[in-house]
Design a protein around this nucleic acid. Structure first.
Lengths: 233, 233
DNA sequence: AAATAGATATGCCACGTAGTATACTACTGG
DNA sequence: CCAGTAGTATACTACGTGGCATATCTATTT
């Protein structure tokens, strides 16, 4: 088998396979809340919906199980992983550590161009302002955080940050009052870029951890004010 | 679908399905070096070896790909993920952060019984002493680190620590001179338990990070002294 | 050197198997 | 006669097999 100059599936751009499609669609549905936590899904039902055989659906579900977005009950079916307050706490705890580390490393290796790009990304988040939809907020937020994580020059760390970011995004789609945490988020972002420009790793770590804590608080407040189905508090 | 009192597949003890079997066998082969980094594997070949159809093999390979132990090349095949020096550096960097955090949290929540158990685990590592086989060393080491990570009371963090620990174990099986890093490891372990007993989270974090750094250095030294196939330095 | 044919890999599917939960029935005890 | 329970039938579910189609790589031929 010759692989010279070829990339593995994880970095393939044109994911044409049905398995990839099913995975992308189902993951999107889980994250955006179309498939809320706790609901049951079955292979034949999804295969019918997605107009494909059960096999690609099955493989997509298996992948989602590994990532923790779904749970498999052998011989019985699948369920979208329920979310508890403890889970959310744990998630944000790990995310803070990972992103804090990424920011500390990024402070020492980000180029000037990348820092400028970060400024623009933070501004873009600001521009959308008040009536920002959840989707645009999540997308813009992910781009910003991803850029910093990539600045760590540690692909493994970047990948971990991204997967945790996506799980947080799932929570954003549940906490409907995005506006409540938005302005603080923008300020945090700008402050993070500022300390990154100072090349101060420890300051950057602390700024990122504090930002993480702020979003956690805002999200939790929005959630208790607006309880969601499938979330045990 | 009724799930009262039932557990998901991830926590099922009796993994009877062929997919689970194939996954366990292949993962073991990759970690222990029976399948060294860089070698090609194919579904039909493995299906023949494991006396099963291609489907369970395929799902096991997919799972290994998600975990990063294998790479998928669409329409062409699979390959055991090659290991580079950069990858190892990145791995240890992330591992240090994760385990350091776990230790810091564990310092505040480990019970006296659990601390006693940790002492015994550290002693068990010591007893095996000089002529320790790689497998017993890896197993004992994993048990010790797992117990601390579990003390963080953060299942997500524990799971991440374990997966990284297993990837490190894979490197241990390659760096054949386990003896070179063994005594230092035992001392580190005892020191970690000591600071955990002091309930000092920051000390525990630092001790764990230093231990991580020591094993990294020892492993790298053993590797340059004894180059392995499939590892680009 | 370019084109082509063969070999081999995955991607996908239809079908059969086996395990599980539920609904129904029959039986038992009051 | 009724209530409750044990057993059974059925209708789901995932699991696994084998085969076909298609894409890719290699070796050969023009």
């Amino acid at each position: 088998m010759n692989r010279t100059g070829r990339s593995a599936v994880s970095s393939e751009k044109r994911g044409k396979s049905l398995t990839e499609q099913a995975y992308a669609i189902l993951r999107e549905r889980v994250i955006t809340g179309v498939l809320p936590p706790g609901v049951d899904v079955s292979e034949p039902e999804l295969a019918d919906q997605l107009q494909m055989s059960k096999t690609p659906v099955r493989e997509a579900l298996a992948r989602l199980c590994v990532e923790g977005l779904m749970e498999a009950f052998p011989r019985r079916g699948y369920r979208v992983t329920p979310v508890t307050l403890k889970d959310m706490d744990d998630l944000f705890a790990v995310r803070g550590v990972l992103e804090g580390t990424a920011a500390a490393l990024a402070a020492q290796s980000l180029t000037e161009d990348e820092l400028d790009a970060l400024d623009r990304l933070a501004d873009a988040s600001y521009i959308v302002g008040e009536d920002v939809s959840t989707k645009t907020f999540v997308t813009s937020n992910e781009t910003f955080h991803s850029a910093i994580a990539q600045g760590s020059r540690n692909p493994r760390l970047h990948s971990l940050v991204m997967s945790h970011l996506e799980e947080c995004a799932r929570l954003f789609y549940m906490g409907t009052r995005i506006r409540d945490i938005n302005p603080e988020t923008i300020n945090d972002h700008h402050r993070i870029v500022a300390v990154l420009r100072q090349r101060d790793g420890e300051k950057a770590r602390l700024a990122m951890i504090e930002h993480n804590e702020n979003t956690r608080k805002g999200l939790f407040a929005a959630m208790v004010a607006n309880p969601q189905p499938g979330i045990s508090l």
